[in-house]
Write a protein that binds this DNA or RNA. Structure first.
Ligand SMILES: [Mn+2]
Ligand SMILES: [Mn+2]
Ligand SMILES: [Mn+2]
Ligand SMILES: [Mn+2]
Lengths: 226, 226
DNA sequence: CCTATAATTTCGGTGTGCCGAAAATACGTG
DNA sequence: CACGTATTTTCGGCACACCGAAATTATAGG
């Protein structure tokens, strides 16, 4: 019999959360260096910690290869994402935070609130299934509704569809896009791809924008039409 | 020029909080061993940590003597007590927690919430000045209203006064007292002290109780009459 | 197939906060 | 005032999570 799922440190919680969420909207498995970059840590630190995750039965790791979660690791990750995203939603709904202001606060609170408290806010919010950025909120039983979506950067000319998700990694970008009128469910149409790796021209509510690489790699569009 | 008040670790925050609150209702300064007991740590750990607090300018310590806070330590303590007690109040008022259920959750959250968040809940609560246990909530500017009070164990026979504070250290005791009808502002009268270190007979809302040592050392009464 | 380069891991080391055992100190009693 | 006891401190050590430098491994181009 192995270690009965012991209480994870907040470092452990952050690792599995990042490992899981990396493959949420894209299939590419995560490598040590990407994991290090996302966590803001040195690669050597990550290698060591990943070994500990493996020893704890949360991850598997082929040396020099990708890091994958075990089913136990996945359920811890889903638990943490539920926490993170419910807290973000609650900060927006109940405290008037902007969608560009919630991430850092949630990043800390997700490790601190009790299950009782978390389920209380889930109830107050009516058990929402997506957070302010369109990321799916796993249910308490670990099930998730993952929407089909196309990265705006990959959408063909003429494609049109609702905004399904905007990555919350860069608050400044979120604020910019919010100011421009981008919101979940607003419909975006790809007008034209400027030549030589230039910007992507899109239309939103009748208005036109040129979006750079960073922006088009942060926005996902749902089932639409070409 | 010394270290500009650096961000304190949650260990540091807990130490100054306990040091300060020990002299809140009683004048006796705190010693290493009492501090260790309150924190649930070994005395040797406390000695070392107190040295670090002193080095950080938060406390002063006469070897083999008492631990005292500097003004900087005191203001950090007040900041933490404001956090702890506002969070406790909020859990009771907005989440239906019982007064015996809030302490542990607050103990964690006090280190995690941002100032913005804390002041938001303070506003929602109407800037209360005492928590569910009667402990004063310091204002954001660091000022406190400390009520005059007598420990029930020290009150003379015939003394009568409103409950001003009940220590939140023992949840089981809080629950018991709550079940018996004890609440802030309910009036308690000391009837008689049973001989040979026995219980203390009190009256509350017409009903009589015999309270043991632990209970009478946890309840404070306000200005009353003999 | 061989090698240069980039990614990854290993290794020695750090800071924080904790512990138990042993040594030092304080203090009440005789 | 001296001594035994209780308190406090010192000391060596540990767990956790991190780092940079050096060593190792993968792999892509020639
Ligand atoms: Mn987020
Ligand atoms: Mn989010
Ligand atoms: Mn409390
Ligand atoms: Mn309290």
């Amino acid at each position: 019999m192995q270690e009965r799922s012991a209480i994870a440190s907040s470092a452990t919680e952050d690792y599995v959360k990042v490992i899981y969420s990396h493959t949420e909207w894209q299939p590419e498995p995560i490598t040590s260096s990407v994991l290090a970059a996302r966590l803001g840590l040195a690669p050597s630190s990550v290698t060591e910690m990943v070994k500990k995750l493996a020893a704890a039965g949360l991850a598997t790791h082929v040396p020099y290869g990708a890091v994958t979660l075990t089913s136990e690791g996945r359920s811890l990750a889903l638990r943490m994402l539920r926490r993170h995203r419910l807290i973000e939603t609650w900060l927006v709904e109940s405290f008037g935070y902007g969608w560009d202001e919630v991430h850092d606060e949630a990043e800390v609170l997700e490790h601190a609130v009790s299950d009782r408290f978390l389920e209380a806010i889930a109830g107050k919010l009516g058990h929402p299934l997506r957070d302010p950025h369109g990321d799916p909120i796993p249910r308490a039983d670990g099930s998730v509704e993952q929407p089909d979506a196309v990265l705006l950067a990959d959408a063909p000319d003429g494609f049109s569809g609702p905004v399904v998700r905007i990555s919350d990694r860069d608050p400044a970008l979120l604020q910019y896009l919010g100011d421009q009128g981008f919101a979940l469910d607003s419909v975006v149409t790809v007008v034209e791809r400027r030549p030589f790796g230039g910007a992507l021209a899109v239309r939103l509510d009748g208005a036109g924008f040129d979006l750079g690489d960073e922006a088009t790699r942060a926005v996902w569009l749902g089932a639409g039409s070409s």
